[in-house]
Structure formats: C-alpha cells, structure tokens
Amino acid sequence: MGIVERIKKEWFLLGIVFVISMAKVEPSFGIKGGPLKPEYTVKYFAVSFIFFNSGLSLKTEDLTSALFQVKLHGFIQTFTLVFIPCLIRVLIKGLQYSPINPWLLKGLMVVGCMPPPVSSAVILTKAVGGNEAAAIFNSALGSFLGIFVTPVLLLLFLGSPSAVPYSTIFGQLTMTVVAPLIVGQVVRRFVKDWLERSKPPFGTISSCTLLLIIYTTFCDTFSSSDIELDHFSLVSIVCVVLLIQVCLLLLLFFVTRSPSFGFTPSDVVSLMFCATHKSLTLGIPMLKIVFAGYEHLSVISIPLLVYHPTQILLGGVLVSPVRTWMLAAQKVKVIGASKSSNTNSHAAPGEAV
C-alpha cells in the first residue's frame, strides 16, 4: 500500500494527531470564550449536527429494529453504569496505598460513574461499519439514564452532596440529541430518493465534526494553568486510564463473541465502543455542580479529561483492525450459514426415503 493510500485510509487518526498538535501550539483559539466559541459551536451546534446527520443517514427501519434489541441495550447499560464503577472502585482500593494524588483517584472514580458519550461512540461505530442504530440508541439512552444514575453513583461511591438540576440537563439533552435525531429522520422521508442516489459522505462529515470537538477539548486541557500536580501522579493516572480502557475493550471483544450471547459481529463493535466510553460533555457540567466550591475541582476533572481523548485516540487506532475483523467474521458467518443450508438440502431427500 502506497503512502497516499495509507494516508487516505488513516486520515481520521492523522486528523486527531493534527488537531491535538494545533491545540497544543495555540490553545487560546479553541478555549471557552475564544474566537471559536466552543461553548456554543461545540456544545450546541457540533453535537446536534452529529445526531442530525445520523438521523438523516440512518434508515428508519434500522433504528426501529434497534429498539427491540433489549439484550444488547441491557448489556451495554449494565456494563457501563454498574460493572465499570464497581471495577474502578476495587482498583482504587489498591491504588490508595500508592503515592498517586488522592484527588486524582477520586477523579478516577468520577470517570467510572459517568454515562456513555453522545457522539464519539456513534461515530466510531459508524466508521467501522458496526451496528450504528444500536450505538445511537444506547448513546441517547445512556445519557438520559446518566442524568439520574450518575449523581446517585457519585453519592454512593464518593459521599458527595448532589443537587443536579435535572430539568436543565434533560432539556439540553433533548435539544442536542433527541430533537436533531428526530428532525433528521423527518427530513430523510422527504429526500430519501436523493440520498440513495447521491450517497453523501455522512461518515466523513461526522468524523470532521468530531475532530472539532477533540480540538476544543484539548484546547481547554492545555490552557488549564491552575492544575498543580507532581509528575509521578499525572503520568501514573494517564497510564491507569489507558490500561483500564485497553482491558475493558479486550474483555468485551473476547466475551461478547461467545455464541451464548448471540451477538452479531456488528453488535460486538457497538458494544466495544458504547460500553467502554464515558461522556465528557455531560461529565464536566455535572462535576462543576456536584463538586461546586471544591478547592481540588480541577484535579478531580483530570482523569475525565484524560479518559475522553484517550478513548477517541484508541478508537481511531482500532477502526481499521476492528473493521477488518468484523468483515472477516461476517464472511465466515455467511459461509457457515450457506454450508448449513446446503447440508440440510442434501439431507432432505434421504430423510424422505
């Protein structure tokens, strides 16, 4: 494969590296209040556009069928809102004897309590070619559950007083996730024939929008000057976050392929991304509310700030190999079904005799 072809294939991963580098060079352009105005362009337009784009590109019958994949939805929500918090709680029990800053460990627990994200898991699932309808459904469902479940989890694991304005967050999610998705589906009914003829590059458009979100996220991270930590704690928490994500992805990949679950290869893809990703979009506002007035709020936020771009970076790296596996697994499944069908057809005459 030539260099140009390789660049075309891995453009999204290269784009991630590029926008992070640009955020490091000049973070003031994409910070809150900066020229890019991410508090409006990203918070409202970018996320809304991603779900409008998904609603426009997704066949209504596919989204409808996703509603009935109860086992898949139950697995994802239980894994991300029950299993992960408990796993991280056990991990922190061991890490509390290490020299790592205890406020960073609290921040790690906060990560475990967060709901799935509203954009990255959907786009990565779409980039691989997995069950996008299930990814959209679970991103929306997880976000709404997170409004109620996350404060309870924070109270349970951290003992922090929580007074989250549910109506405000619920309204924001409705306007940025549900409404754009419905509008996209409605518009699709009127332009369905044109969409099938022209086949717009929905995946590329969504990926470019996600690059904008990544850029502004890193601008805020690099511009934070009130964060004071020893290098050991910071490097350690980055390594722990990376290790957690790799272990969760591997666990899901190997466990959910078991025939006992009955998940298809495309289901496994949506499981990997939706069940392991955590929301920065919902997380940071919740942190500012739940930990309002805390002197160490910025330190508590670090693990989530690390987790969010790490999950996207890992996802970008995994897109190509996971797509290759999924296509191969689907091919094997089709061949197996074909052989089974042929065997049954050949056995039929003998049975009749």
Results as ranks from 00 to 15, higher is better:
residue 140 A to I: 15
residue 92 I to D: 03
residue 291 F to D: 01
residue 49 F to E: 02
residue 39 E to Y: 13
residue 14 L to W: 12
residue 191 V to A: 11
residue 166 Y to H: 07
residue 213 I to S: 03
residue 113 C to I: 09
residue 210 L to W: 01
residue 169 I to E: 04
residue 4 V to G: 04
residue 240 V to F: 11
residue 273 F to I: 13
residue 151 P to F: 04
residue 37 K to I: 14
residue 31 I to D: 02
residue 84 I to N: 01
residue 23 A to N: 04
residue 118 V to G: 11
residue 108 L to M: 07
residue 145 L to V: 07
residue 266 S to R: 12
residue 288 K to Y: 12
residue 35 P to I: 12
residue 67 L to H: 02
residue 2 G to M: 03
residue 200 P to M: 08
residue 81 L to S: 07
residue 211 L to N: 07
residue 205 I to V: 15
residue 11 W to E: 05
residue 265 P to Q: 06
residue 65 S to N: 13
residue 209 T to V: 15
residue 258 S to D: 14
residue 313 L to N: 05
residue 137 F to L: 14
residue 209 T to R: 02
residue 269 V to I: 14
residue 156 L to Y: 13
residue 66 A to N: 13
residue 157 F to V: 02
residue 124 L to A: 07
residue 254 F to M: 05
residue 224 S to W: 04
residue 276 T to F: 03
residue 344 N to Y: 08
residue 109 M to P: 01
residue 58 L to P: 00
residue 144 F to C: 08
residue 156 L to I: 10
residue 316 G to K: 15
residue 119 S to C: 08
residue 270 S to M: 02
residue 12 F to M: 07
residue 73 H to R: 06
residue 143 S to Q: 02
residue 297 L to G: 03
residue 289 I to C: 03
residue 352 A to P: 00
residue 246 V to Q: 05
residue 309 P to D: 03
residue 314 L to E: 05
residue 72 L to K: 14
residue 87 L to S: 11
residue 269 V to R: 07
residue 218 F to S: 06
residue 282 L to Q: 11
residue 329 A to R: 09
residue 305 L to Y: 10
residue 306 V to R: 01
residue 11 W to F: 14
residue 261 F to I: 05
residue 129 G to W: 09
residue 29 F to I: 15
residue 198 S to C: 14
residue 79 F to K: 05
residue 241 V to I: 12
residue 142 G to W: 09
residue 95 L to M: 07
residue 6 R to Y: 08
residue 227 I to K: 13
residue 61 E to F: 06
residue 79 F to D: 03
residue 219 C to K: 10
residue 80 T to W: 02
residue 49 F to L: 15
residue 62 D to P: 08
residue 105 L to N: 05
residue 340 S to Y: 03
residue 117 P to H: 10
residue 35 P to R: 09
residue 150 T to S: 11
residue 120 S to R: 01
residue 298 S to W: 05
residue 73 H to L: 14
residue 258 S to R: 10
residue 92 I to M: 01
residue 31 I to E: 07
residue 77 Q to M: 14
residue 166 Y to I: 11
residue 275 A to N: 02
residue 314 L to G: 01
residue 133 A to K: 06
residue 26 E to D: 15
residue 52 F to Q: 01
residue 174 T to H: 02
residue 306 V to W: 05
residue 127 A to T: 04
residue 132 E to L: 05
residue 300 I to W: 02
residue 339 K to N: 11
residue 18 F to T: 12
residue 201 P to V: 05
residue 42 V to N: 00
residue 318 L to N: 08
residue 77 Q to S: 06
residue 340 S to V: 00
residue 145 L to Y: 11
residue 80 T to D: 08
residue 312 I to K: 03
residue 255 V to P: 06
residue 213 I to H: 06
residue 256 T to C: 14
residue 283 G to W: 00
residue 168 T to V: 13
residue 58 L to H: 01
residue 52 F to D: 07
residue 170 F to S: 04
residue 166 Y to Q: 12
residue 113 C to R: 02
residue 87 L to T: 12
residue 52 F to I: 06
residue 225 S to E: 08
residue 40 Y to W: 15
residue 281 T to Y: 06
residue 123 I to Q: 01
residue 264 T to V: 04
residue 69 Q to N: 15
residue 286 M to F: 13
residue 345 S to I: 10
residue 123 I to H: 04
residue 243 L to R: 08
residue 225 S to L: 15
residue 189 R to I: 12
residue 171 G to A: 09
residue 72 L to P: 00
residue 210 L to P: 11
